[in-house]
Each structure stands twice: as C-alpha cells, then as structure tokens.
Amino acid sequence: MRCVLCERDIHPMLTWEGLFCRRKKWVACARCYAKFERARADSYEGINTLYIYNEAMKEWLHRFKFAKDSVVAHIFADELKRAFKRYKRAVVVPIPMHVDKKRERTFAHIDVLLEAAGVRYTHLLEKTTSDSQSQKSQQQRQKSATLFRRNAIQLKKDTPLVLVDDIVTTGTTIRHAREVLEQDGFINIEVVVLISARL
C-alpha cells in the first residue's frame, strides 16, 4: 500500500478491523497526516472547522482542486465521517458549484469529499454566478449580490440542515448560503467546513 500524497510505502498495523473490514485503498502515511494542523474543537460564528490552512493544506488543496486529482479527497474521509456523526438526523447540504465551473473541473469537489466519507447529501442550493470568491478582495466579497438561490426540492422547515464547504476565509459564501436558507424558513442550520483560513 502506498501513500496517495508522497507515494511512500505504508505498512499498516495488524488490527482486527484490518483483518475483517475491506481495506481502505486511498490513505496517506503518518508523516503526511502529521503535517496537517487540526483546528480547535469550538466553533467560531457557528462554523465548525476541522483543519487549519497551512503549507501542507495549501498543497493538498492545489492538488485536489487545480491538478484535479480527485482521489486525494479520501484522506479526510474518516475525519469527515466522524464530524458528521453529531448530526444524525440532519440533511447535509453542500455548497454548490456553478454548472459551467463544475464542467470545467469535471467534478464538484465538496460532493466528492462527502462521497469519499460516505456521507449522504442533498443539494438545496444553486449557484447563480460563475465567478470565484478567491479572486476577489475582502470589500468586493462583502458587497457581492446573492450568490445562491433555492432549488425546487422541498423539505419540512424544521429539518435540521448542515451546510458544508471546503474552506472558509471571510465567511461570505457561508453567510450568503445561510441567508438564502433562512429566508426559505429553515431555522436549524449548522455549518461544517473542512479548512479554516481565517485571517
């Protein structure tokens, strides 16, 4: 077995789980995992983050989103799965990508992350603009018009929802998404974000 990030051989420990469960195919080695920095458990502005943006995370994100190596999503599968255990009854809502952007990248990265972790999700939102937040300045981000719109899927308004995104910098994307859902009458909305890049 090899690490998906550095290609070094991994010698997995012999455990009962390893003996009886199907072996996970796409994992990183301990050295690579150690380079990622965990975020503190408490949430900030109602956003739960799992990791902090650092050099290793930057490399991972580049590989995942720009080099389009979609299997590297699997290395955070366990961590994401654990994070979603808290929201048993909730409906998981990924932040959507614009259709053109998705076609260009050939996959929707949040969906792929969730699929790797085995978390079921339902798209309740649609992206209305195709321009990316990461190209804008802080002022531009805060002023920008609504980024999302509700789609046709109807749910009971008291269903708890969990919004998911890959990275949070200023929080604009999340704020927009939350507003759209709140306007539609949803009252219980939580947020899970993989990486925190707060300034």
Partner: peptide
C-alpha cells in the same frame, strides 16, 4: 488509473495519476 464520475461527460471517466 482512477475512475470518477465526470461532470463534463456525465459518465464514468478514468484519469492517470
């Protein structure tokens, strides 16, 4: 070789790592 669901073709495609 990784199989994935390709949004461009809306079918399973394969890429080389």
């Amino acid at each position: 070789y990784i199989r994935y669901h390709c949004a461009k073709c809306d079918k399973i495609c394969v890429y080389c790592r």
